[in-house]
């Protein structure tokens, strides 16, 4: 499904060079639910961003669904993000000016399809996360748990094969966190491959596999 080989990520400023990831090799199979754990600043989110094509590695190769993506242009990477990957962020990243339904529709705006079809798919996704009664609300009118469920609906609306979740329960209380994890487990059972960054050992234990990072390196 997704394979990282010899990934290195260096952040450079005029005076400092920081090695955020060093020789990361990961191979995640279709249908897996993998957790990434490690202390703050160890490079978890950077790794997830590289997996999600939100950032480029300084060195190494990313292969998604048998395609090695080195040299892919912005437009091609955008198409892969749009059709094959769904993102869930710790701070939700919803657009407050748009209604819940409009937020969920966003990934569908960048692929062919009629407006009515988009509406239909967005409603289905919201039903799946139990928020069909909040479609016309705006993000600012929702609780943290509800916002994250909207974010999940947005991540799954385009039916991507890979879901990347960056500390999806980080801003939620334990009850809400469990609720969100249950939804993710459900999606995994339905066939989605999920990679989740978390700080919570208990949550990580409920996933199939755990990747640990320390100071930008993979530890086993």
């Amino acid at each position: 499904m997704i394979k990282l080989s010899g990934i290195e990520k260096v952040y450079r400023t005029s005076s400092i060079e920081t090695l955020a990831l060093d020789n990361i090799n990961v191979d995640i199979q279709k249908g897996e639910f993998v957790s990434i754990m490690g202390p703050s600043g160890c490079g978890k989110s950077t790794l997830l961003n590289i997996m999600g094509l939100l950032d480029e590695p300084s060195k190494g190769e990313v292969t998604i669904n048998e395609r090695q993506l080195k040299g892919y242009k912005d437009k091609e990477l955008a198409r892969i993000r749009n059709q094959e990957i769904g993102f869930i962020f710790q701070s939700f990243h919803l657009i407050n000016d748009l209604s819940v339904l409009d937020n969920v529709e966003i990934p569908l705006l960048y692929r062919p399809g009629s407006g009515s079809k988009r509406r239909e798919l967005a409603k289905e996704a919201l039903e799946k996360v139990g928020l069909s009664n909040r479609m016309k609300h705006f993000p600012t009118q929702l609780s943290g748990g509800q916002k994250q469920r909207v974010a999940i609906a947005r991540a799954i609306v385009g039916r991507p094969s890979l879901i990347l979740a960056d500390e999806p329960t980080g801003n939620l209380d334990s009850n809400m966190g469990n609720e969100i994890l249950n939804i993710l487990l459900q999606l995994n059972q339905e066939g989605s491959t999920i990679i989740m960054v978390t700080h919570d050992e208990n949550m990580a234990k409920r996933t199939n596999r755990l990747i640990r990072l320390f100071d930008g390196r993979q530890v086993f």
């Binding site: 939100l54 059709q83 692929r111």
Partner: peptide
């Protein structure tokens, strides 16, 4: 910038 980055993450190319 937040909105732009969200749209990009979900597949909007720079031109769009």
């Amino acid at each position: 910038s937040s909105e732009i980055s969200i749209r990009k993450a979900f597949g909007a190319p720079s031109k769009t």
